[in-house]
Write a protein that binds this DNA or RNA. Structure first.
Lengths: 120, 120
DNA sequence: GTACTTCTTACAGTTAACTCTAAGTCAAGG
DNA sequence: CCTTGACTTAGAGTTAACTGTAAGAAGTAC
């Protein structure tokens, strides 16, 4: 299955502007038809979903580009990509811990304020 | 104990610029000396620490201002403030869940890539 | 008494990641 | 044929939260 940029935008919940922007930033490489128009594939859908996950976990465009470059170089870069992911995983773990701790602190504050309220 | 803006900046790890900015944005109200210079107190230290936690948990300046306004109105607003915190807690819980899920997905991806590597 | 810090207002600059416009061209669908 | 969508480059605008500059005044510390 192939998609025009409009169809792909609808499919991925991104705007055409953003898709062209991502392409310019080398996050993804897109095939073209005879007339030079972008033809997205299902492989692009899967890849963009992964890009979105990396973004959700706070990876910058800059770092995703590094990963994407390796990926488009093929299987030989698998080890290097794994290393990037492992590195990134560390920051995700840290972020998760941060939110857990913040939640505890917030609950403590709420609990303390509740008690104050009872005393008045 | 009282602090000049420079001392307070060092104490809170924020710049003087940021402190004045926060004041203009009504996040905190600061006492002045006879010459009109800011005199921060230990109460301000505690309050700013709480502001920083709210910021860390993704609360916008706009929303912190709402909370701060209530707080400076005194004890009568305690219930309203609690409601804001409870509301905010929901978003923190959601964020925590998001990071947990993302971590799982990332680990799955890493694991899958590792297996691929073994097969080649 | 000189260097330092602080004060004010007002406004410009920074960063990331979009988001959109202009202007002109071109191809497909009905 | 005509509308719609896509193409290009180049550049401007947006958002949040700072971050800094200018310019002039005034108090503080050694």
């Amino acid at each position: 299955m192939q998609y025009t940029i409009g169809q792909f935008a609808a499919l991925t919940q991104l705007s055409s502007y953003t898709l062209r922007y991502y392409e310019k930033e080398e996050l993804l490489q897109v095939a073209r038809d005879a007339a030079g128009r972008r033809r997205y594939t299902d492989a692009d859908v899967a890849w963009l979903q992964f890009i979105k996950r990396l973004k959700e976990t706070g990876m910058s465009i800059h770092n995703i580009r590094s990963y994407a470059r390796l990926r488009y170089q093929g299987d030989a870069t698998l080890a290097a990509r794994l290393a990037l992911l492992e590195q990134h995983k560390l920051s995700v773990v840290e972020e998760k811990l941060k939110w857990e701790q913040n939640l505890v602190k917030l609950e403590e504050k709420i609990s303390a304020d509740c008690k104050m309220k009872l005393n008045t």
